[in-house]
């Protein structure tokens, strides 16, 4: 099962020609094939149906299939472009393309904006920002008082919300990231440049994993 079987004949839903994907992403054809290998591994970890289910995504991220996380949920939803509850291999490769070191910074800024626009209103609102800070605190050992959280959210919001209308729009987000480039550091995965080294071939990788 998976994106591409060794025979190359049977393909699962969402299969896309690696050559076409390579044209539309920063990846080479061999890098796309290596990502297919990674996809096959992730998509068969719980249900071997060639699709990444949320539990499989959580298992890969946290080594725990039941660990839900606000941010992992948002990433999953953004990768699930068709919004059918699973990540298909084409969606996986296209989405990871944004995280490639050579992907346009504008794409990374846009992706991060959509990530943080929890309710998809086209704006990052103060309540959303506070919700994300609280979610982050819940998953870490960091304990901050309600007052401190308010101060952090207020300060960040006043810095980013240039127009002062109580919400951060895309243009304001872009300017804020340009002033604070470290905010999108996690939108780049240096590992993607070495993906063919990690997954050199379909056959070899499956043998190594045994």
């Amino acid at each position: 099962m998976g994106c591409m079987c060794s025979s190359g004949i049977k393909h699962t839903p969402g299969y896309e020609d690696p050559a076409l994907l390579a044209k539309e992403t920063p990846f080479t054809v061999s890098e796309v094939e290596s990502l297919y290998e990674l996809f096959n591994k992730l998509s068969s970890s719980i249900i071997d149906d060639g699709l990444i289910h949320k539990e499989e995504f959580q298992l890969a991220l946290f080594r725990n299939r039941n660990k839900s996380n606000l941010f992992a949920d948002r990433i999953f939803d953004l990768f699930d472009v068709k919004r059918n509850g699973v990540i298909e291999c084409g969606e996986f490769v296209r989405s990871l393309g944004v995280f490639h070191p050579n992907a346009p910074v504008e794409d990374k800024i846009e992706f991060a904006f959509r990530l943080y626009d929890l309710r998809q209103t086209g704006f990052i609102e103060r309540e959303e920002l506070k919700e994300m800070v609280i979610a982050l605190l819940h998953e870490s050992d960091l304990v901050l008082s309600e007052d401190v959280i308010e101060v952090i959210v207020d300060k960040t919001f006043s810095d980013a919300d240039i127009k002062g209308d109580g919400k951060i729009d895309k243009e304001e987000w872009k300017q804020f990231v340009e002033k604070n480039p470290s905010l999108i550091k996690n939108m780049t995965l240096p590992y993607l440049k070495d993906i063919t080294l990690a997954f050199p071939s379909f056959v070899l990788t499956s043998e190594l994993e045994d």
Partner: peptide, 26 residues
């Protein structure tokens, strides 16, 4: 560093849920 000087987005970006490098770990 004082908590009150933290950038909220900087804080959020440290979430484990946003660290996709875990996907590549064997």
């Amino acid at each position: 560093s004082q908590p009150v000087t933290m950038n909220a987005f900087e804080l959020i970006s440290k979430s484990q849920g946003l660290n996709l490098s875990s996907l590549f770990e064997k």
